[in-house]
Design a binder for these strands. Structure first.
Lengths: 185, 185
DNA sequence: GAGAGCATGTAAAATGTTACATGATTTT
DNA sequence: AAAATCATGTAACATTTTACATGCTCTC
């Protein structure tokens, strides 16, 4: 019943009780690895998780800002998360618009195609630099926490390392493909 | 107006005139890099492309099999494809359910999590082997065609190389992450 | 006789994005 | 005075997946 987004939210709430607004910021930042969502999808999903008994909320009244709902994971939610996390999964082919464009480069102007690839090389290099910065901070934090595998940092670290590998590989491919286009005439 | 799927279809038809059925098989195979679709999405999309004037079809009557519609790209379609292919594009964060699960591994049973990662390591290794096989064939074909950049092979080759890099990096990460989980206690 | 392949479509449901809607406080 | 931040929601639209629907031929 619960979607991937639902479990993503459940894990974030398990890490720390928080509001829908907090969750929506996390899932829109560029450091949100491998899943994203807008607030318009998050609020209804939180309602579903709550009616499934996976989370509860308490209203915190504020005077200067709007009141807010802080969500907390329940025992049932934690149990469901643990089961889902290790359930078998087929590898899913990913979608990437740049690669669809690339497949059409045999029809395109080589100089313009090379420029597009150079632009993406730069974008992925920037993303990589961002991740490398977080890596240092995260490793530090993990060190101080005694390298424990049962703390949120561990999950974040594993996915961050995948993000680093992904961006590095993508940047290198852009560089190679751009050179191919530039050499082509 | 035209979606990414529309342009993906347009490029495939530009490579070779074909039917909706042919397209649906291509976009469901595991060698279809970086975009997929079911036939239920393809047939309506072809109708849109045709009403936009980007493709036309001729009906081929068959006696032993059902009649079929062979779609061909028009000059307007080719022009639209060439413009779209090099139009600027922001990098889009990718979605990957395994990584969402991984983020929750701090809550999961380490042995079960390691097993899941080992399974994906195997799946990505298989995909990589498949791509490496195609690579040899494609390079051969391209060699014989005089290494021209204006043939469909070129686009296929560029995307294939990205597929190879992607799968290799993913396999290596799975191996590393599995070792992390197995070492953890 | 059952199932797979060829071939084309529609309907319904789930998921994701963009836009609409409100309203106070703080910063530029 | 305009824009950004906090905070929560709904509505409309686009995209994607799953299921429904038909029918003929060939293979096991």
């Amino acid at each position: 019943m619960t979607s991937t987004l639902g479990y993503a939210l459940l894990n974030l709430i398990a890490c720390e009780p928080q509001t829908g607004y907090d969750l929506s910021r996390t899932l829109q930042e560029r450091i949100s690895f491998f899943w994203q969502a807008k607030h318009s999808q998050i609020y209804p999903e939180l309602a579903k998780l709550e009616s499934a008994g996976f989370i509860t909320h308490e209203v915190v009244r504020q005077t200067d800002k709007p009141d807010k709902k802080i969500y907390t994971i329940t025992d049932a939610g934690l149990a469901a998360l643990r089961v889902w996390a290790v359930a078998p999964l087929e590898i899913a082919p990913s979608r990437d618009e740049l690669l669809v464009k690339t497949a059409a480069f045999w029809q395109a102007d080589p100089a313009a195609a090379a420029a597009l690839l150079r632009d993406h090389e730069r974008q992925h290099a920037e993303q990589l630099a961002l991740y490398e910065g977080i890596r240092a901070a995260l490793e530090d934090e993990w060190e101080r926490a005694g390298r424990r595998h049962d703390l949120p940092w561990f999950g974040n670290y594993l996915t961050l390392m995948r993000g680093i590998g992904y961006e590095r590989e993508y940047r290198d491919w852009c560089r190679w493909a751009a050179a191919m286009m530039e050499a082509g005439d």
